[in-house]
Design a protein around this nucleic acid. Structure first.
Length: 920
DNA sequence: CATCCGACAACAC
DNA sequence: GTGTTGTCGGATG
């Protein structure tokens, strides 16, 4: 269940008559408990309670419904019940149908309210539904509720007005107007409370036939100055509404028709308390309403405030706060800071519903309010112009919402810091300027949308971009100010991009060298930012997929950013992005800030759920606090040791590869097994010791294989499958369906290195196999190589290199021959060195053998690694590291530093030359 | 022709 | 269910 569905279920429960016996089960069901789980609780099987009449679901909640007046006593019993702790209950809850009390057992506070009001606190209990990731959401009950109600209205209106489905821009604008009206009538902006809904209710017919007309008239009034209303013939009932304008009410005032149901939804929504809206949170929730694909996950795509602050704080807010701290009570310094802040622009070129902008605005207002307080000017009008908060958003509805969210944020800040009177006095009419541009950020000219101050910029802009400058060009109140670019642009991988998106990247990258096609879509925002920062003072930071700072993409993107004059000013290493979705495997992201001349570099690392900050001398493109080095992939090993190649690509649709059962089912004799069946080894086989086989038919055995019906059928299936592929190279192989794409085999032995493997092991997995093994495309192989190669790959040094230089899948290791093995810096090895390392490799293999049949997964589990194996690796590291520096390295930082140093020497000075602008 | 990747995907536990 | 950990084949250079 998503939060919106839960809210609805909880609200419905509160409307039903209180049923003491049923309440605990009803409550659990509202939070998504399955019927089977509830039945088992009801039967007592899983009810762990030791309090009479209570229900205790392990790991979840201890809940009781009691006689009237017994709440305090029962709550005490639950709190003191040893079972509450031992069964790890997250909550205790007691109600008698009049009073409702609950406690979060993990120190998250309490709820005490009248029974009828408990749905307002449903956010408190969201962990019951597995939604734990976002702390703020507990205070966002209103936003979830409003999102659910508005969604219902939206769907209903589309049902009643099929023609509006193709007019999404009008529909979105209409919804934004409605939200504004709901907010305005609850905050006295409309002078008398409830003016909007009361007018609709009283002036429109109960059968809803003219609701849209009454509403249109009200909208028309809000777009007409009071002095013109007489002439415009505005109906008297609409004249009570203030003049709002601000683009929100300009343009067509047409409204969709309302059914009776839609009209009642409308009136119901208006009864919510819109004062409580959180414009940052609400916006990101509501934007799913207008998106067919996202509607199922309503309320889930919520970017948490702490994550947004991970971008904004290091980008510029921390600095402002430090300056505030420094200023103390010095009036002059405070004034300077206020002047500076008035000129700061925040620009989010992927702003969605504007939550980065809203949060930046709110945080700045909070700092400004402190300045004004210290200067004894608490009522002072804000010097921070809303027009300095700009965004670009592709989708129309979020763009509307973003604009609205900023307006609401401004009003709420005014109320908070200056008081209701002052806020009201200056709120209307709205500024008619549009700060949120609806369009494609990678096609639009940022300099046009967020023009830097100074001279000559316009000319340079035309030089840089071929995009026509037909966008709104509005002057900023920021002469001499700073610009901070921020946001969470979309990531698409290298393959997930549409043709349009690829061509957008092409238009950005065509004037540079380098193969942009390996880059993630998000890299467009970084390059655009670096270009922009050449023209103005400021910096940029985005949330991004971590892959732009790994493997393949590094040598393309970062030399280019560097050649544009930007450096990494701060970074947050990989962490899981969290939103409200409970099954939020999510993505692993980084935050990277770039600037032209950063004063200091801060590196944030996620540890035990919080970010630890280190001030470092430099942050390189791998987000490592070390020298600026770019490791280019190499097709030959720079160390001159063994050749490592990819295993055999099958391209067989599953017909040539067999598990043990499928091998049995083939029903072939031992001669056949000898001739055409081999063991196949991929990542999982090396790590977990599992067994798979493959049909492996040398051309000389082809007719033999085709004479076995079960084998023939599989081979025929491969032919069909390869023909059906959209990939020409696969089609071309359909004339030899009995074979893999390649047919590489070891003569005597093969070392096999899994491509993907867990990051939790202290050493990389590698297996040594005899010549009966076939290597799959999920592993690399060194065929018939010297054993000391195994020693090197098994070393801590190598793991450190691979984990830094190669790509990752989330945070998994992702081995690469060209990027990791061929580039691995090794000093020239003497024959003695090689002999020593070979002995170390043998030691490792022997130690593993001593624990047969434990697998690599068992042996290298950091908790369970056997002492003798650990000792063998220590010896191996000792011998290898002595070859590098004559002693053991102290830590991984030192290892990496030495490896970078040696790499630089081995590939020669200068390094990669990519990323420069093409000579015209 | 040989990688390298996945706003992942499919397992175990 | 959720924590752990590597499939598979297409796009790419």
């Amino acid at each position: 269940m998503n939060p919106v569905e839960i809210e609805e279920a909880v609200s419905n429960l509160a409307l039903e008559p209180f049923d003491r016996a049923e309440f605990p089960f009803q409550f659990l069901r509202a939070f998504g408990s399955k019927d089977t789980a509830i039945q088992r609780l009801r039967a007592g099987n899983t009810n762990q309670t030791d309090v009479p009449g209570a229900i205790l679901q392990r790991g979840n909640i201890h809940i009781a419904a009691c006689d009237i007046g017994g709440v305090d006593e029962t709550l005490k019993a639950l709190r003191e019940s040893p079972k509450t702790a031992s069964q790890k209950a997250k909550f205790i809850l007691v109600t008698d149908g009049e009073v409702f009390q609950a406690e979060d057992m993990n120190g998250g506070g309490t709820v005490a309210c009248a029974y009828a009001e408990f749905p307002d606190h449903f956010g408190f209990f969201l962990p019951l539904a597995g939604i734990t990731t976002v702390e703020q959401i507990r205070e966002s009950s209103f936003d979830i509720k409003a999102t659910g109600r508005l969604n219902k209205l939206y769907v209903e209106l589309l049902k009643d007005n099929p023609d509006w489905a193709s007019r999404s821009v009008d529909m979105n604008h209409f919804m934004a107007r409605l939200i504004f009206c709901f907010f305005a009538e609850d905050t006295d902006i409309f002078l008398s409370g409830g003016l909007f809904s009361k007018t609709i209710e009283q002036m429109s017919a109960r059968d809803s036939s003219d609701t849209h007309l009454v509403m249109a008239e009200i909208f028309r009034a809000m777009d007409t100055k009071p002095e013109n209303r007489e002439v415009a013939g505005i109906k008297p009932y609409a004249r009570k509404f203030p003049y709002v304008n601000g683009q929100l009410f300009s343009g067509s005032t047409e409204c969709p028709r309302f059914s009776k149901i839609a009209r009642s939804y409308l009136l119901h929504i208006s009864s919510l308390n819109w004062k409580k809206i959180n414009p940052d949170i609400f916006g990101s929730m509501i934007q799913a309403v207008a998106d067919d694909e996202e509607r199922g996950a309503l309320g889930m795509h919520y970017t948490s405030v702490p994550n947004i602050l991970k971008v904004l704080n290091p980008l510029f807010l921390d600095d402002l706060r430090e300056k505030l701290e420094e200023a103390g009570d010095n009036g002059r310094k405070l004034l300077n800071l206020r002047h500076r802040m008035a000129k700061i622009r925040v620009f989010d070129p992927a702003c969605g519903s504007g939550n980065f902008l809203v949060i930046a605005y709110k945080e700045m207002r909070s700092i400004e309010a402190e300045i004004n307080r210290r200067r004894g000017e608490p009522d002072r009008r804000s010097d921070i112009p809303l027009t300095n908060f700009r965004g670009i958003e592709l989708r129309d509805f979020p763009a509307e919402i973003a604009r609205l969210a900023l307006i609401i944020a401004e009003y709420q800040c005014d109320v908070l810091y200056r008081g209701q009177q002052e806020a009201l006095a200056e709120f209307l009419p709205l500024d008619s300027q549009n700060w949120i541009t609806c369009g494609n950020a990678l096609r639009l000219d940022w300099l046009g949308i967020c023009p830097p101050t100074g001279t000559g910029v316009r000319v340079q802009a035309k030089d840089l971009f071929e995009t026509p400058l037909d966008q709104a060009e509005i002057d900023f109140e920021n002469e001499g100010g700073e610009t901070y670019i921020c946001g969470n642009p979309p990531y698409k991988g290298t393959k997930g991009q549409t043709t349009d998106q690829k061509s957008e990247l092409e238009s950005i990258f065509e004037c540079y060298d380098g193969s942009f096609k390996v880059l993630d879509y998000v890299s467009g925002w970084f390059v655009r930012s670096a270009e922009y920062l050449r023209h103005t003072f400021g910096s940029a930071a985005f949330v991004s997929t971590n892959s732009i700072c790994q493997g393949n993409q590094v040598p393309v993107l970062w030399p280019l950013i560097s050649s544009l004059g930007s450096r990494i000013s701060f970074a947050h290493t990989s962490f899981k992005w969290a939103n409200l979705a409970s099954h939020n495997a999510g993505v692993t992201v980084i935050i990277v800030g770039i600037g032209v001349s950063p004063e200091e570099r801060r590196l944030y690392i996620e540890q035990d759920g919080s970010s630890v900050c280190k001030v470092v001398d430099n942050i390189n493109a791998y987000l490592v606090p070390s020298r600026n080095i770019i490791v280019e992939k190499s097709s030959i090993p720079i160390h001159g040791l063994g050749q490592m190649v990819l295993g055999n690509q099958p391209y067989e649709g599953g017909f040539l590869i067999l598990d043990t059962q499928e091998l049995e089912d083939l029903n072939i004799n031992s001669e056949g097994r000898e001739k055409i069946i081999r063991k196949i080894i991929g990542s999982s086989e090396v790590v977990n010791g599992s067994e798979r086989y493959c049909i492996w038919v040398e051309d000389t055995n082809r007719s033999y294989a085709m004479n076995i019906p079960t084998v023939r059928e599989r081979i025929e299936n491969v032919r069909v499958w390869r023909n059906a592929s959209s990939r020409p190279a696969t089609n071309a192989m359909s004339n030899r369906p009995h074979q893999f794409c390649e047919m590489k085999s070891p003569k005597s032995s093969v070392m096999i290195i899994p491509i993907r493997s867990s990051e939790n092991r202290p050493y990389l997995p590698i297996g040594l196999y005899d010549n009966t093994a076939t290597v799959s495309n999920l592993a690399y192989a060194i065929y018939d190589g010297d054993l000391f190669n195994l020693s090197i790959i098994s070393s801590r040094l190598h793991l450190v290199w691979i984990s830094t230089v190669c790509g990752k899948l989330e945070t998994r290791f992702s081995y690469s021959n060209k990027m990791g093995w061929n580039t691995f810096p090794v000093p020239t090895l003497t024959e003695q060195n090689k002999a020593d390392l070979t002995r170390c490799a043998e030691g490792i293999l022997l130690a593993r053998e001593a624990h047969f049949p434990l697998t690599i997964a068992d042996l290298y589990d950091p908790q369970k690694m056997p002492e003798d194996l650990r000792a063998a690796h220590e010896r191996n590291d000792e011998v290898l590291e002595r070859i590098y520096i004559g002693r053991r390295f102290q830590n991984d930082t030192e290892r990496l530093e030495k490896l970078f140093d040696l790499y630089t020497k081995m590939v020669g000075k200068g390094g990669p030359k990519k990323g420069k602008r093409k000579a015209a």
